[in-house]
């Protein structure tokens, strides 16, 4: 196939989609992650849907893992890495001018779930979690 920059991440996303299972069923967050989510939401209930998170199925190196999210209409989005020493990664705040999406590169200490929680315009919260395998290489890693 012809790989373009645009479809490269989408491909990764497609691979994830197959293995992705509903958030609350598969995602057992650590206390630290739950505390960060509670601090973000003020303890409000967190639903599902309305937020997409694209991550590699297998990251070639945990030092630089590309991630991408889209949560149309969200005012704030927090990214958490459930298996890191501290789960916090980044919090995005969007004005009305901005499209509620973002791409960045993050550090993952090992195979784990990456969680994105969004605060929507109506004040409700929604979340998504993806599992990312981080390989410790023979030589390249």
């Amino acid at each position: 196939m012809k790989l373009t920059r645009r479809n490269a991440l989408a491909l990764g996303g497609a691979a994830i989609a197959i293995t992705l299972v509903p958030v609350n069923a598969a995602f057992a967050a650590t206390d630290a992650t739950l505390a960060d989510i509670a601090a973000f939401t003020g303890g409000a209930e967190v639903g599902e849907g309305g937020i997409e998170l694209t991550t590699p199925e297998i990251a070639e190196n945990g030092n630089t893992v590309p991630i991408e999210f889209s949560a149309p209409g969200a005012r704030r989005v927090i990214i958490l890495a459930d298996g890191n020493p501290n789960p916090g990664v980044a919090t995005f705040n969007f004005s009305e001018m901005a499209v509620s999406e973002g791409t960045t590169r993050i550090r993952l200490a090992g195979t784990q779930d990456v969680v994105a929680v969004a605060e929507m315009a109506d004040g409700t919260y929604t979340q998504v979690a993806n599992s990312v395998k981080v390989t410790i290489g023979g030589c390249g890693g």
Binding site: E68, N86, G88, G102, T104, I106, R107, L108
Partner: peptide, 16 residues
């Protein structure tokens, strides 16, 4: 964006 230490070296952001 509020960044924590888990953002990679040479921080990169794409937004619209």
């Amino acid at each position: 964006v509020i960044l924590e230490p888990a953002v990679s070296t040479n921080p990169y952001f794409k937004f619209s």
